[in-house]
Design a protein around this nucleic acid. Structure first.
Length: 270
DNA sequence: ATACCGACCTGTCAGC
DNA sequence: TGCTGACAGGTCGGTA
């Protein structure tokens, strides 16, 4: 589900609502599949800590936590997979199906992790989490070019590779390539300097606009307050297969690249 | 090292 | 109405 703008929106919402709160107890459901750390370790690590801040790294939500006694800094890393949600709820709110974790907070509120497809992952760590790749919103052009030089994979696939750039997923790869006028199947290493520059700024632009719109809600994305985003209304390529290009009216094509549904304009993108 | 492809899960929707 | 198959904001591990 969530790519950089959605995770950013969720992380900001969580930061606003739970910073300074304390995790009193943690319940983890009986199917502990969506975990990277063992369930007992997760509860033990979270319980009694104060939430110092919540932020996004790539597609991960990072909770920076401080234990009460020792100066034990620790982190709770959440990846939402395709369908994960992290909600702030009141205890009387109905516990919907596929709720895998509930953290009770001192304020009386709860953090709830819900994930129907269970592609999401929960992990606790002691050391600082850097994420697998570079931040799309921070990377400078030269470094951006260096990531893709020499690569034979299609540029779409390279954009999805989290060890290069982290945070870009299927929607924003398509939207970025559309805005940059570059076909998704072009070999990543074959772009001209001009094209890399266009892609670099197009990606940053679309990601920023999407954050400002609260992310894209296709079927089930909601932020920490349960609110939908509305950037899906501004998609120019993603999900528009067969519909006329907003620039030239040519029907948008839908193909498969790197195993993912891929949308592009055969006239505007070269 | 790099790239592809199926597997992992559940829900939904189109087509028959 | 109900079944089947395809598809979905993502990653991972095995294979070539």
């Amino acid at each position: 589900m969530p790519e950089l703008p959605e995770v950013e929106t969720i992380a900001r919402g969580l930061h606003k609502r739970v910073t300074g709160d304390r995790i009193e107890s943690v319940w983890i459901g009986s199917k502990p599949e969506p975990l990277k750390s063992p369930a007992a370790e997760i509860s033990r690590t979270l319980e009694g800590t104060r939430i110092e801040q919540v932020r996004r790294v790539g597609k991960h939500i990072v909770f920076d936590l401080v234990a009460r006694s020792k100066n034990g800094k620790r982190q709770w890393i959440v990846h939402l997979g395709m369908t994960g949600r992290m909600l702030v709820a009141t205890p009387d709110a109905e516990v919907i199906s596929h709720t895998h974790l509930i953290a009770k907070l001192k304020s009386g509120r709860e953090l709830r992790f819900i994930d129907p497809r269970r592609f999401g992952r929960l992990e606790v760590r002691a050391s600082s989490f850097e994420g697998p790749g570079s931040e799309p919103l921070q990377i400078r052009l030269e470094e951006f070019i260096a990531l893709f030089r020499g690569r034979k994979a299609p540029i779409k696939g390279a954009l999805l590779n989290q060890t290069l750039l982290h945070g870009v997923g299927n929607i924003y790869a398509d939207e970025g390539l559309f805005r940059a006028g570059i076909r998704p199947r072009r070999r990543a290493g074959s772009l001209t300097r001009r094209e890399y520059a266009r892609l670099h700024s197009a990606l940053q632009e679309v990601l920023k606009e999407a954050i400002a719109a609260g992310g894209s809600s296709i079927s089930d994305y909601v932020d920490a307050e349960g609110e939908e985003g509305f950037f899906q209304l501004q998609h120019r390529a993603y999900g528009r297969g067969g519909e006329p290009c907003l620039v030239c009216k040519t029907p948008i094509k839908k193909i498969v690249v790197a195993g993912r549904g891929t949308h592009y304009c055969p006239r505007c993108q070269c």
